[in-house]
Design a binder for these strands. Structure first.
Lengths: 132, 132
DNA sequence: TACTTATATACCTTGACACGTATATGCCAT
DNA sequence: ATGGCATATACGTGTCAAGGTATATAAGTA
């Protein structure tokens, strides 16, 4: 359970993160709002804390948890690699501005699927430079 | 295994997605580049396909897989909820805008924890309107 | 027709993790 | 100190998913 991706794979953890967007919360508050048992909340918070998603400060007997930005930036950085790709696609779908991308066929737009070429060169003109 | 988050939690699947950014690939090509067994690749591709991350076209005996944008947009939409937050924080850390957070010491910088208020109102002035 | 390549699927085993119950720890109040 | 509240942790259990091996399916080729 190291990667940020595994951390946010858990629905309850995502719920906790969403809760904390508005403001910091104590364990009990989270417990009540999300209707989870207290140990479950504590455990998820532990995971989130160790992954850097949240931090806590002590307030008497309670702990107030709040978000930390770093892991989100990491997620964003990963997504960024695909962002160029999908924005191309959004364009291609919404409109038909293929001429704006003279060299990026965006895969989806052209003949879609029935390409059915002679196999050997079915991939031609599509890949960048990885004849492999 | 419904959510996009669970899909990308698997390292091998992320590797496949990263591979497909550059261009579409056949199962065999993925298998060789990532050094995974063929059934493993097929299985992951199945998961990715059913989750809408990829689509495939038949090319003789092979299947060519390529990315689809929708799930990435979904991820981006989720991240967006936190984006405002973390950019705020970057500012908050670099500078010292504590007056914006009269009682949220950001943990890192100021009084750390000893805030030690009367408890009952420790959270006051921080929440939006979710007294719940 | 056989043989080979490419991919998908089935079955099994294993390990991880999420949850619940119970309990420990720590802080407050009386 | 004693009891109560807030949170953390331990332990046992069930589920589920990932990987491996074997096999099925399908399309090429000789």
């Amino acid at each position: 359970m190291e990667s940020v991706f595994e951390i946010i794979a858990e629905p309850n953890r995502r719920a906790i993160l969403s809760l904390l967007v508005s403001s910091q919360q104590s364990v009990g508050e989270i417990e009540r709002q999300l209707r989870m048992t207290q140990p479950t909340v504590s455990k998820h918070l532990r995971v989130l804390r160790e992954a850097g998603f949240v931090e806590s400060t002590v307030d008497a007997q309670r702990r107030l948890y709040r978000l930390k930005p770093e892991p989100f930036e990491e997620l964003d950085a990963w997504l960024a690699r695909f962002r160029r790709f999908w924005s191309e696609h959004v364009d291609a779908l919404e409109r038909h501005l293929d001429r704006m991308h003279p060299l990026a066929p965006t895969t989806a737009t052209p003949t879609k699927k029935k390409t059915r070429r002679n196999r050997r060169d079915a991939n031609r003109g599509h890949n960048k430079g990885e004849t492999k």
